[in-house]
Simulated scan of single mutants.
Amino acid sequence: MPDRAPPPQSLLNSLPQRSELQRRDPAPVHLWHPELSGEMDMRIARDGTWYHEGDPIKRLALAQLFSTILRLDEDGRYYLVTPVERWGIQVDDAPFVATGLTVSGQGEQQQLTFTTNLEDSIPLDADHPLRVELDPQTGEPSPYLRVRANLDALISRTVFYELVDLAVETEVADQLRTGVWSGGQFFPMDGAE
C-alpha cells in the first residue's frame, strides 16, 4: 500500500497544544515561511484585547495560544504563522500590554519584571529592553518593552507611573538621563536620543 500524504493542516489544528496548567514557549515562527493564506478578521486592540470577527476573544487560553504563533514581518505587518499557513491580522499598536510590575533588589542591582495581559513574565534586561517614544505633536510618552523577537508590549499608564516613581538620573555618554536600573543595566526613559 503506498504511503499517503498527511492531511493538510489548518491554522487551528496546527497551533501548539497546551493545557491550562502548562504554558508553552512561542513556536519557532521565524523558521516558517509559507505563502500568504489571506487576511483574517482578527485584531489586537491597543488595550491588548484580541478580537475575532468583531467579538472579543473571552478565553484567555485561546488568546495565549494565538500569541505563540504571532510574528511581525519586515513589511511591518503582523501574521499568525504555522508551517503551512500565514494569515495577516491587524494590531492597533503593540500586540501585548504590560499590566503589572514587580521590583526586587534596589539601586543598580534591582530587577524589574513585567507581567503582560496574557500572563507572560518579562524581565527588563538586555534581551528585553525598554524604549519610550514621544508623540511629536503632544510630547506624550508611549513606553514599550521588548517581549520577544521584534514583538513589543505597550506599558500601561499605571505601570508607567510606577516606573516613573523608580526613575533616577544617571550620566550616559556625558549626558544626564532619566531612567531605571534593571538587571545591572540602565534604561533611559526620557525619550531623548
Rank of each mutant, 00 (worst) to 15 (best):
G183D: 15
G100R: 05
T49N: 02
L70S: 06
L65G: 12
E20M: 10
D3W: 04
M1D: 09
G107C: 01
R131Y: 01
P2T: 12
P26S: 14
V103M: 07
R46V: 06
Q111N: 09
Q22M: 08
F66D: 01
G184T: 11
A149V: 05
P26Y: 09
E20N: 05
V172G: 06
F66L: 15
D190I: 07
A167I: 01
G76L: 02
K58T: 15
P26K: 11
S156C: 00
R18I: 00
H52M: 04
V81Q: 03
Q17N: 04
Q109C: 00
E85L: 11
F96H: 13
D3N: 11
L112V: 09
R148V: 06
T115I: 06
I44K: 06
K58M: 13
R43C: 12
A173C: 00
V159H: 03
V29E: 07
I122M: 05
S121E: 14
T82W: 07
L112W: 09
A126M: 11
A149D: 15
Q110M: 11
Y51C: 02
V132R: 08
F96W: 09
Q22S: 09
Q22E: 15
A167G: 05
R24W: 00
D92F: 02
A192D: 09
P2C: 01
G38Y: 10
P56F: 03
E85A: 14
H33G: 12
P83F: 09
S121Y: 04
A45R: 14
R157E: 04
R46P: 00
L118Y: 10
I69W: 03
D125H: 04
S19A: 12
G76F: 01
L134K: 08
Q90V: 15
G54K: 06
L36T: 07
A153Y: 07
R148E: 11
S182K: 11
L163Q: 09
F114M: 05
M42G: 02
R148Y: 07
G76Y: 01
S156N: 04
A192Y: 00
R4Q: 13
V84Y: 07
A98P: 10
A98C: 08
T99N: 07
L145G: 06
W32T: 09
Q64H: 09
D190C: 06
H128A: 05
Q17P: 00
L176K: 15
H128V: 03
Q90G: 00
A126P: 00
V172K: 05
N150E: 10
D135N: 14
R59H: 13
D55F: 08
R86P: 00
L60M: 14
A63D: 01
E74R: 09
G184L: 08
P123A: 09
G184A: 10
E133N: 12
